[in-house]
Simulated scan of single mutants.
Amino acid sequence: MDIHHFAFIRDEDTDCFISAFGEDEENVLMIQLAFEFDKQDTELGWDTYCLVLPSQATFYGGVQKCALEGEKLTLWLSDEAKAELEIDDLELHLCPWMASDPQLIHALTTVFNVPRDRPELVLNPSSSALQA
């Protein structure tokens, strides 16, 4: 997926952080994390981040590893997430400016900072872009 748009917001209306990666306005992958979880969220296994695909297919948790290496962001998914979402691991190709945007690192460390289903994070942004 070639990513041309990135946003990270604190949405007070939905009480969650939203990290959005888009090819265009229609094809957007979102990773959302609620500000807090209630008893029902915990009972249902929703006390973690949530992946929302452009098709609106949704899965709670499921990322085993998240790696930012230069201009490539890869999300390795659990077998359960792949089966439920009917996809393979996600490979996002970022614009050069995104790979060095401190907001991207902040977004990833925020949405994946959960006690349950916390993926391994490997964050190596583009060093050439950081020097520009």
Rank of each mutant, 00 (worst) to 15 (best):
residue 1 M to S: 15
residue 1 M to A: 14
residue 2 D to A: 12
residue 4 H to K: 14
residue 5 H to D: 08
residue 5 H to K: 13
residue 5 H to M: 11
residue 6 F to Q: 07
residue 6 F to W: 08
residue 6 F to H: 13
residue 7 A to L: 10
residue 9 I to V: 15
residue 10 R to N: 04
residue 12 E to N: 10
residue 12 E to M: 08
residue 12 E to Q: 11
residue 12 E to F: 06
residue 13 D to Q: 15
residue 13 D to K: 15
residue 14 T to Y: 02
residue 14 T to D: 03
residue 16 C to M: 09
residue 19 S to R: 03
residue 20 A to F: 00
residue 22 G to L: 06
residue 23 E to I: 13
residue 23 E to V: 14
residue 23 E to G: 08
residue 24 D to G: 07
residue 24 D to A: 04
residue 24 D to C: 06
residue 25 E to Q: 10
residue 26 E to K: 12
residue 27 N to D: 15
residue 27 N to K: 14
residue 28 V to Q: 03
residue 29 L to E: 02
residue 29 L to V: 08
residue 29 L to Q: 07
residue 30 M to T: 09
residue 31 I to N: 02
residue 32 Q to R: 13
residue 36 E to C: 07
residue 37 F to Y: 13
residue 38 D to Y: 10
residue 38 D to E: 08
residue 38 D to T: 12
residue 39 K to P: 01
residue 39 K to V: 11
residue 40 Q to K: 14
residue 40 Q to M: 08
residue 41 D to F: 13
residue 43 E to T: 10
residue 43 E to C: 06
residue 44 L to H: 03
residue 46 W to S: 00
residue 47 D to P: 00
residue 47 D to S: 13
residue 48 T to P: 01
residue 49 Y to G: 02
residue 51 L to F: 04
residue 53 L to D: 09
residue 54 P to W: 14
residue 55 S to C: 07
residue 56 Q to P: 00
residue 57 A to F: 10
residue 57 A to R: 15
residue 60 Y to G: 12
residue 60 Y to D: 07
residue 61 G to Q: 05
residue 61 G to P: 13
residue 62 G to D: 04
residue 62 G to Q: 05
residue 63 V to S: 01
residue 64 Q to D: 10
residue 64 Q to E: 11
residue 65 K to V: 06
residue 65 K to R: 14
residue 66 C to D: 05
residue 66 C to Y: 06
residue 67 A to Q: 14
residue 74 T to F: 06
residue 75 L to R: 03
residue 75 L to A: 04
residue 77 L to N: 11
residue 77 L to C: 06
residue 77 L to S: 08
residue 77 L to Q: 07
residue 78 S to G: 11
residue 78 S to R: 12
residue 82 K to N: 08
residue 82 K to L: 05
residue 84 E to H: 13
residue 85 L to E: 01
residue 85 L to K: 02
residue 85 L to D: 02
residue 87 I to A: 12
residue 88 D to P: 05
residue 88 D to K: 11
residue 89 D to S: 11
residue 90 L to C: 03
residue 90 L to G: 01
residue 90 L to W: 02
residue 93 H to T: 05
residue 95 C to K: 13
residue 95 C to H: 04
residue 98 M to N: 09
residue 99 A to V: 05
residue 99 A to T: 08
residue 101 D to V: 04
residue 101 D to I: 04
residue 102 P to K: 15
residue 104 L to R: 07
residue 105 I to Y: 12
residue 106 H to E: 08
residue 107 A to N: 01
residue 108 L to A: 08
residue 111 V to L: 08
residue 111 V to E: 00
residue 112 F to N: 05
residue 113 N to M: 05
residue 113 N to S: 11
residue 114 V to E: 00
residue 114 V to M: 02
residue 114 V to Q: 00
residue 115 P to M: 15
residue 115 P to Y: 14
residue 117 D to L: 04
residue 118 R to G: 15
residue 118 R to D: 10
residue 120 E to A: 14
residue 120 E to I: 15
residue 120 E to D: 07
residue 121 L to F: 06
residue 122 V to W: 01
residue 122 V to Q: 01
residue 124 N to C: 10
residue 124 N to R: 12
residue 125 P to F: 09
residue 125 P to G: 13
residue 126 S to A: 08
residue 127 S to E: 12
residue 127 S to L: 10
residue 128 S to V: 02
residue 128 S to M: 09
residue 129 A to T: 04
residue 131 Q to C: 05
